[in-house]
Design a protein around this nucleic acid. Structure first.
Lengths: 145, 145
DNA sequence: ATGATCTTGACCTGATTAGTCGTGAATCAG
DNA sequence: CTGATTCACGACTAATCAGGTCAAGATCAT
């Protein structure tokens, strides 16, 4: 469940779309510049986000990316699981039906994991974008990772 | 904060000592056999546990390992952090004084992380050993990882 | 057609994980 | 003292993953 640049950058890209995507699609290069993410890498993340149904992409001049669903309907858990895979701290907590394996301390981690997922589910892209707008107004600096 | 074999095996080794260490030290080979851990690998984990002050080791015939502190005074957080390093899901949550970097969604993760540490702190080696004794009595199978 | 843009897959580098192996050092029994 | 037993420690390796880069191609507005 460690969050890497994939998760961080990916979420930031979506926040960017939520903030600047009001009129027409937003270009990769713009997102990359604003969020300080290497453009070539962002490319892959956008592809993943598209396949997962979070964004729509349009090619050609004046093309770009936009949210496929309203920002209020997308939560952090969905996005992070799409980008990073399962967030389970132990393999045995992953929810494929045939549980099979059991690991030591499973009961402790189960609660932690469930709690975490709940909290992440409660946060929408809209919340994050608002928070970010606040932060920018305060003139805060934000180097990621 | 993903828990790997190090954390899993290491905790199991300590549980083993808590359960079978009543009279005299317990040998590496015994632990390895009971807990299904490769002995050569267990060696490293025991070394780490010793350096971190959780166990004492004696060489020679009838040597072995034993808990350095009573099982009630050792909690899961201490052990896991000694074995796996910081459990922070994001580097920016690590608590070295010069915070410097900030990452997106930090506020969400801070709560999750704090909650997790609290829960892990609340579980002692004694609790784990008891739980394990129960499980064995029920004849449960326990393949780790 | 053309140029900006997205799309895909191949590839690269360094770090980490999960171990193995071999040698050496302490301890104890006889 | 000698040898058996057990831990101690460092070197080595193989596989996987993170975090990227790069190049060729597909698409579409104009």
């Amino acid at each position: 469940m460690r969050i890497g640049t994939k998760g961080d950058y990916g979420v930031r890209a979506l926040i960017d779309l939520a903030m600047y995507g009001g009129d027409g699609p937003v270009q990769r290069a713009e997102i990359a510049r604003r969020q300080h993410v290497p453009e070539a890498y962002l490319d892959h993340l956008l592809a993943q986000l598209r396949r997962a149904g979070f964004i729509r992409s349009m090619r050609g001049p004046s093309g770009g990316h936009e949210l496929a669903r309203p920002a209020e309907e997308v939560n952090l858990l969905q996005v992070l699981e799409a980008l990073e895979g399962s967030l389970a701290p132990l393999p045995c907590l992953e929810d494929h039906e045939g549980e099979g394996t059991v690991c030591a301390q499973q009961w402790v981690w189960r609660e932690i994991y469930d709690d975490m997922r709940e909290r992440l589910q409660a946060v929408t892209l809209h919340d994050l974008a608002e928070r970010e707008r606040d932060r920018l107004q305060r003139g805060a600096v934000s180097y990621s990772i």
